[in-house]
Design a protein around this nucleic acid. Structure first.
Lengths: 244, 244
DNA sequence: ACGATGCTTCGGCGATGGCCGAAGCGTTGC
DNA sequence: GCAACGCTTCGGCCATCGCCGAAGCATCGT
């Protein structure tokens, strides 16, 4: 069992504002360079370097060198889950303590709320809407303790080119069981969406099919023309109103 | 969505050694007084009081007054899950960095490793053994993304007096779905056991039947005579060798 | 009513740790 | 090769925050 000192050290590492900003920036699953992370955190590269060394040492980040660039990413899905749970607790405390107007909008925030990545899966209105449709059709179930695909849900996703075999292998070492997924609370929507191995497989499939594209330098993603067609039909999304 | 500053504040709150010790002490789900928590953290009551005020303010703890005693407990299962995930990440980093001998034993540690509470469910060798038996019989499935009871598992637990209706209501607002549970990594065993609503219901049932009893002033619990009989039979536990 | 107990607030001390400027390596590209 | 770039290490400044002693407020017991 980890000593209480190590436990506190992990949390303290996350608890510094600069480091927290870096970790949150990495929650979309990409790997960023030290300088990029310094910009995100609003500090100089030399300060960021120290922070990154600590985070890597503690096993929260993993680093791969590519020429003179050092790419940092979250060390594991476990770390992403942990950050997500801290997010969840933080989000669930005070409704409106002081400033009720700051939370509202922002120009590029609109794109983020619409669709974005969350480590290895999708979040935002789009992801919540997909989860809602699948729940309504009985294709998936989500609860605070976990979730699972029904037979129909597995068939539906397979038909869309989602590799459930890989997802299954990811999640369960032994074969033959249920295909589990995991709910992930969406901060902007305050509703669960599909995470875990299934959510990751769905995200991979949409990107592979060219239905989804990353927006440069942001966690936000956008539906392509073909994505609107395919996913709009498959998930019954009312995509008429926003001609982006 | 929570600001990154609030996110960092939550983590920083957990990151102080004294506060971390208090939070870990509360992970067994009990409510402790300020003075007790001060002792746990190795600080004076006035310092503890400040810490507890901050933790309560941030929504990590809840406080109920009973005469001159102030009882503090974790504010929600969400907080417990968060602490657990931090534990998990912390545990999963360095195998044996420096001292290979310190992790080993300890007199009262033996009882803790055998069986203890973990917020609202059970952990330790006993809990892992129960989970193993149920998995082997196909009564339950556990994966990193979640878990579920099979029909047989539900029948088995119902026969042991576990109130799955209540667990089900706990976990799912809507009726009619699968009964999910959640895996929880055991630090001493490094193996998953049954958490979530099902795990909580099991724990409640064992205590209600008098099969399990808390050890005073510790997270450890002990099997009673009748508990050895009932659970030993139901879960096929090899209880011959340790005549406690 | 009185002292004892549990908890809290206040004030000041001390240390941990984040921050940057400057300088030192390694890689890339001209 | 040299210059530019990315990252790291080193040194010292400064703020934050945890800590306790002392004192103040509630509650319980006699």
């Amino acid at each position: 069992m980890p000593s209480t000192a190590e436990f506190a050290e992990t949390a303290a590492l996350i608890g510094d504002p600069a480091r927290a900003n870096m970790l949150i920036a990495l929650m979309d699953g990409r790997a960023l360079t030290a300088t990029e992370l310094a910009r995100v955190a609003g500090i100089t590269p030399q300060t960021a370097s120290g922070h990154l060394a600590h985070l890597t040492e503690a096993g929260l980040l993993a680093m791969t060198r590519q020429g003179r660039h050092h790419y940092h990413r979250l060390a594991s899905a476990d770390v992403a889950r942990m950050l997500e749970s801290i997010m969840s607790v933080t989000a669930g405390r005070r409704p409106l303590p002081a400033r009720p107007a700051r939370t509202v909008t922002g120009p590029r925030d609109a794109a983020l709320r619409r669709a974005r990545t969350c480590y290895d899966h999708l979040a935002g209105q789009l992801a919540v809407a997909m989860a809602d449709r699948m729940i309504a059709r009985g294709e998936i179930e989500l609860s605070p303790d976990g979730g699972a695909l029904s037979e129909g849900g597995a068939a539906f996703l397979s038909g869309l080119g989602v590799d459930l075999e890989a997802a299954h292998a990811d999640a369960m070492r032994r074969g033959g069981g249920r295909i589990f997924c995991r709910p992930c609370l969406d901060w902007s929507e305050r509703r669960p969406h599909i995470a875990g191995a299934v959510g990751a497989a769905m995200s991979r499939a949409w990107f592979a099919h060219g239905w989804l594209r990353r927006i440069e330098g942001s966690r936000a993603v956008t539906l392509t023309r073909s994505g609107e067609m395919a996913l709009g039909t498959a998930f019954d999304l009312g995509l008429g109103e926003q001609a982006a």
